[in-house]
Simulated scan of single mutants.
Amino acid sequence: MDLQALVACGQALPSNPRLVALLLGELGRPEPELRKISQLFGADPALAMRLLQLGNAEHRDDARGVISIAQALALLPTAALRTLAGQAAADSGPNAAPGLALPQFWRYSQQVARLARALAASVRLHRAVAYAAGLVHAIGELVLHAGRQQDMAALNREAGCCDPRRARWQQRLLGVSYAEVGAALAQRWGLPVPLVDALRWQLAPFDNRVYEPLAGLVHLAAWRARAQEAGFHERELATSFPAEVGLALGLDIDMVLQQDPIDWGGASV
Rank of each mutant, 00 (worst) to 15 (best):
Pro98Asp: 06
Arg209Pro: 00
Arg50Lys: 11
Arg82Phe: 04
Pro213Leu: 06
Ala132Asp: 04
Ala230Phe: 02
Arg124Tyr: 11
Met49Ser: 15
Val176Gln: 07
Asn95Trp: 06
Ala159Thr: 13
Arg117Ile: 00
Arg224Asn: 13
Gly42Arg: 04
Ala121Gly: 12
Ala159Cys: 15
Val20Ser: 04
Leu135Ser: 04
Pro98Gln: 05
His219Ser: 15
Phe41Ile: 02
Arg165Phe: 10
Leu100Asp: 05
Val129Glu: 15
Val7Arg: 04
Met49Phe: 15
Thr83Cys: 05
Lys36Met: 01
Leu257Asn: 13
Tyr131Leu: 03
Gly134Ile: 04
Ala121Gln: 15
Gly175Glu: 05
Arg107Leu: 14
Leu84Lys: 02
Gly190Cys: 00
Leu81Met: 11
Leu217Pro: 04
Pro30Ala: 13
Ser68Asn: 08
Pro45Gly: 09
Gly175Thr: 01
Arg64Pro: 00
Ala12His: 06
Pro14Phe: 04
Leu73Cys: 10
Gly265Pro: 06
Leu251Trp: 07
Pro103Asn: 12
Val20Ile: 09
Gly140Val: 03
Ala118His: 07
Leu217Asn: 05
His137Gly: 03
Ala167Gly: 10
Gln258Gly: 14
Leu119Ser: 06
Ala8Asp: 02
Lys36Trp: 08
Arg165Ser: 14
Leu173His: 12
Ala238Asp: 14
Glu58Gln: 15
Ala63Val: 14
Arg107His: 15
Ala198His: 04
Ala154Val: 11
Arg64Lys: 13
Ala97Thr: 05
Phe105Arg: 06
Ser38Asp: 07
Gln187Thr: 08
Asp151Trp: 01
Pro242Leu: 12
His219Arg: 15
Gly175Ile: 04
Ala72Ile: 06
Leu220His: 09
Leu84Thr: 03
Leu191Val: 10
Ala70Pro: 01
Val193Asp: 14
Pro98Ala: 08
Ala248His: 09
Arg166Phe: 08
Asn208Thr: 12
Asp163Thr: 12
Trp264Met: 08
Ala222His: 06
Ala116Phe: 10
Cys161Pro: 11
Pro32Trp: 10
Cys161Met: 11
Phe105Ile: 03
Phe105Asn: 02
Arg18His: 14
Lys36Asn: 00
Leu115Lys: 10
Glu229His: 14
Ala48Val: 06
Leu40Arg: 03
Thr83Val: 14
Leu125Pro: 01
Ala225Leu: 13
Asp61Ala: 15
Asp61Tyr: 12
Trp201Asn: 07
Ala184Asp: 02
Phe206Asp: 11
Ala121Tyr: 10
Ala5His: 08
Ala153Phe: 02
Ala12Asp: 04
Ala63Cys: 07
Ala70Val: 14
Pro77Cys: 10
Gly99Lys: 01
Gln104Pro: 00
Asn56Ser: 13
Leu173Tyr: 09
Ala130Phe: 09
Ala21Gln: 14
Ala230Gly: 03
Asn16Glu: 13
Ala132Tyr: 05
Ala8Ile: 07
Pro14Glu: 01
Ile139Gln: 01
Ala72Val: 09
Gly182Thr: 02
His233Thr: 04
Pro14Tyr: 04
Arg60Asn: 03
Ala21Tyr: 01
Gly86Cys: 08
Ala184Thr: 07
Ala186Ile: 08
Ala238Val: 03
Ala5Glu: 12
Gly250Asp: 10
Ser177Ile: 04
Trp189Gly: 01
Ala267Lys: 13
Ala243His: 14
Asp207Trp: 08
Arg50Leu: 09
Leu195Lys: 05
His59Asp: 10
Ala120His: 08
Ala225Trp: 09
Val218His: 07
Ser109Thr: 11
Leu19Ile: 05
Gly140Leu: 03
Arg172Val: 09
